[in-house]
């Protein structure tokens, strides 16, 4: 049994400890947002936040994630009540196919939680790991800036109190 804390809730999963987090999220927890793109840490489609850092869920085995706090796009809001970044992506119409967007938003969320008003260069540098094939980049940057300007992007309370903050390696 692997115990994972995902979007604030604890889940006990009877799966191979080597299973990459991405498969546990998509197949066992039926969360759609994190996407398979390359499985190689090269595209960012699978990006989620673990202990406040944006990570590639396709590479991280679930065995390394017990007692870590995992957040996916689903934690930011719902279709009826989108979170600030989600709303900014809607306002900027920042998607074409949208397949990359869940990863983009989670990576941007990690940035805005530590840097409330990043410069254009900081946004680009931070987003460098994530690929978009449709060429939506300018709108993605605009959405991140819009969300920053609106303010109020914070970590969930539980994460702030987390005793296990730090970058997952």
């Amino acid at each position: 049994m692997i115990a994972l804390t995902i979007n604030g809730a604890e889940h006990k999963l009877d799966i191979d400890p080597n299973t990459p987090l991405l498969y546990a999220l998509r197949d066992d927890l039926e969360l759609n947002a994190a996407k398979f793109g390359c499985g190689l840490g090269q595209c960012g489609a699978c990006t989620v936040i673990v202990d406040n850092a944006a990570v590639y869920s396709c590479l991280l085995p679930v065995s390394a994630l017990e007692n870590r706090k995992i957040r996916t796009l689903e934690s930011l809001g719902t279709i009826d009540r989108p979170g600030a970044l989600q709303q900014a992506f809607i306002d900027e119409q920042a998607a074409q196919c949208g397949y990359c967007i869940a990863g983009m938003i989670m990576r941007a969320q990690a940035l805005l939680e530590t840097n409330a008003s990043p410069s254009d260069a900081e946004i680009r540098a931070h987003m460098q790991t994530n690929l978009c094939r449709c060429g939506t980049h300018l709108r993605i940057i605009a959405a991140v800036k819009r969300a920053a300007a609106m303010g109020g992007i914070t970590r969930p309370r539980a994460e702030l109190a987390s005793p296990t903050q730090g970058v997952v390696r």
């Binding site: 969360l31 759609n32 947002a33 996916t72 796009l73 689903e74 930011l76 809001g77 719902t78 279709i79 989108p82 989600q86 992506f89 809607i90 119409q93 998607a95 949208g98 967007i101 869940a102 938003i105």
Partner: peptide, 8 residues
């Protein structure tokens, strides 16, 4: 189609 795509 965008709202569903940005909310999972």
């Amino acid at each position: 189609d965008i709202p569903a795509k940005v909310t999972g």
